[in-house]
């Protein structure tokens, strides 16, 4: 009995000590500058953490700031959050960049300067559809209504340039787009080169790209106007520095950013001119 009581007491003491230990670094952190980082949920949350945590750790060492990764469950939730200015820094697609600039005044900080973003349209290789014009009145698969290159930009071009009337279905992921096309559920599907390239050879070999959209600058890391220029620049320099190291390149490649460079709002002006808002599905 006494032994049990003793163990209990010891446990309680141990717990209190642990709490103190946890609390102490938090208290020290308040002395540092803390930034909230948002990332578009293009991957699942865990993977996002795996990608971003090493980068953010490096950034903390470089800048002396503390970065807090704030996850968003869905893209609309993410859109709502950055529209409300929830993040100090945020990684987002180019159309989001337009929306964020318009809503909160977010400004691009860095972007992949090596690649450009464009959408592709695939059909079954052994199918009847050989060109875009064959798709009149067909069902077309897209990952989501507001996916920039694969959906918004693709639908804008099919609508504006080809005057196609089609029935879009949204199958959540690029992979599903390709599967729907293969299975014949959709006559064609919108994707991006990167996701197409990552498909298994069996899938790629059975699909045929019949159209590419006009390339746009890829995803930028945006900064909220409340972050002062010094701080923003310090972070930008740190990121750029990261892109100059081998280890950092590997880290950034996972985002993906093949080669990091400075970004400006001007990079996204062509996109702005497409008026993609016409194809945005708000309620989705």
């Amino acid at each position: 009995m006494k032994k049990t009581v003793a163990i209990l007491c010891a446990s309680v003491v141990a717990l209190m000590l642990l709490s103190v230990n946890v609390w102490v670094p938090t208290a020290q952190a308040t002395e540092k500058k803390v930034f909230k980082i948002g990332v578009v949920p293009q991957f699942e949350a865990r993977r996002l953490h795996e990608i971003w945590t090493p980068i953010l750790n490096t950034l903390e060492e470089e800048t002396g700031y503390h970065f807090e990764l704030v996850g968003s469950p869905t893209i609309p939730a993410f859109e709502k959050e950055f529209s409300e200015g929830a993040f100090d820094f945020a990684y987002m697609n180019p159309y989001h960049a337009l929306m964020a600039e318009a809503a909160q005044g977010y400004q691009p900080l860095v972007r992949d300067v090596k690649r450009s973003l464009f959408g592709i349209l695939v059909v079954a290789k052994d199918g009847d559809i050989k060109k875009v014009e064959d798709l009149q009145g067909k069902t077309l698969a897209f990952p989501a209504p507001n996916a920039l290159a694969a959906s918004l930009q693709m639908r804008q071009e099919l609508h504006d340039n080809f005057k196609l009337d089609f029935k879009p279905i949204y199958v959540k992921t690029h992979d599903s787009v390709y599967y729907n096309v293969l299975l014949g559920d959709a006559a064609a599907g919108g994707g991006v080169q990167k996701t197409f390239n990552s498909q298994a050879p069996q899938i790629r070999d059975n699909l045929l790209i019949i159209h590419q959209t006009t390339p746009v600058a890829p995803h930028p890391i945006m900064v909220h106007p409340r972050v002062n220029a010094v701080q923003a620049d310090k972070v930008k320099q740190a990121l750029l520095h990261l892109g100059s190291t081998d280890v950092g390149k590997v880290m950034l490649a996972n985002i993906p950013m093949k080669q990091i460079g400075e970004a400006t709002m001007a990079d996204y002006e062509p996109l702005k001119q497409l008026h993609l808002e016409r194809f945005v599905v708000e309620s989705y």
């Binding site: 992979d175 729907n180 299975l183």
Partner: peptide
């Protein structure tokens, strides 16, 4: 139902 075959397959 959502034609999310990728999720299914995955």
């Amino acid at each position: 139902l959502s034609r999310d075959y990728a999720a299914l397959i995955a």
